[in-house]
Amino acid sequence: MTRLFTTAAALALIAPTLHAAEIRVLNWQGYGTDIEWAVKAFEEATGNTVVHEYFNSEQETLTKLRTNPGAYDVVLINSSFTPQVVAEDLLAPIDPSKLENFDDLDPAFVKNNGLNEDGALYGVPWAWGLTAIAVSNNDFDTPPTSLEVLWNPDWAGRVSIRDDAVEAVQIGALATGQDINDVQDLEAVRTKLAELMPAISTYWGSENDWNQYMASGEFAAATYWSGSASRSIGKGLDITFVVPDEGAIGWLDGLSIPKSSENKDAAYAFIDWMIDPEFYSGWDKEGAPATANTAAAKALPDDSFNKAVLGDPEVVARVQFMQPMTDDKREEYLKLWQDLKAVQ
């Protein structure tokens, strides 16, 4: 609590240099930036008010940024999508000197090639996590170690993957031992996924879906996101998150400032608060993805999900981070996935 006050005081110090503004944040709903206590602390410290708007897909983010210039001050963009937004000239480069917590950010994330373009940084690395699998402890005495559990006939009819073309192809690539960012043998992925399809009970779409299906016993094993898994476990769902031997899909989300923002100083202040260890330790208790701030990661208690699962260097070594992807690839994957779904 004292740290919260010191942070609040620190924010209060820079506050007079800014005039109170209303900043508009564009993000997924329930994804960190809109936590009530955090917003309140920020508003009290800086005098700025925070308004949220939500999107349901990355394409929607892009459309909203295109159609409403000046409407947003902070926007969350997945690093594999950032280049596309930068290419449309919608983002302002980040000035690290305006962020007090910038030096604590993991240099590997800061140098992420999705967030950088022509030597300029366009997104502040904020949160990262894994797409791997989670299993029900009611069904598994010992958690599986391989992705092959999804293909295991014992669990046919009780497995699931997310209804998302890119994620499906990447899971298929992992299962066939390929690089998720450079799939050489797409036919192998297609065959592997075609084998999986009859075993799937239903696809999942959101964290909420997933929790319901897992709680009602529809799922025994399914792909899942690490941040969501930590939240589900926090809510009392008896599951284990597994990073299989084949590896996992890593993703990195950054906070960016649209070029058209008129409250850039307030936006910097908000992003600085979002990457503050103080904020993260509070968020982690509620179930959060991993932080890009090394100081924040170190400060976590040992029993925290993010430290226990994602803090293991051996686990991190198995992760393949998602790289920016061309539109053609996306369309190719989408077609493959649609064809697979259509023949069911």
């Binding site: 897909s57 394409q59 929607e60 459309t63 073309a165 009859p198 009970s201 239903t202 696809y203 069911q344």
Partner: peptide
């Protein structure tokens, strides 16, 4: 209600509007 078998013409149209824009 259809789960894995629930891909129909209507769901593909919905996907175009909602998921892939």
């Amino acid at each position: 209600l259809g789960g894995r078998l629930g891909t129909y013409y209507g769901t593909v149209i919905e996907d175009q509007f909602v998921a892939v824009f």
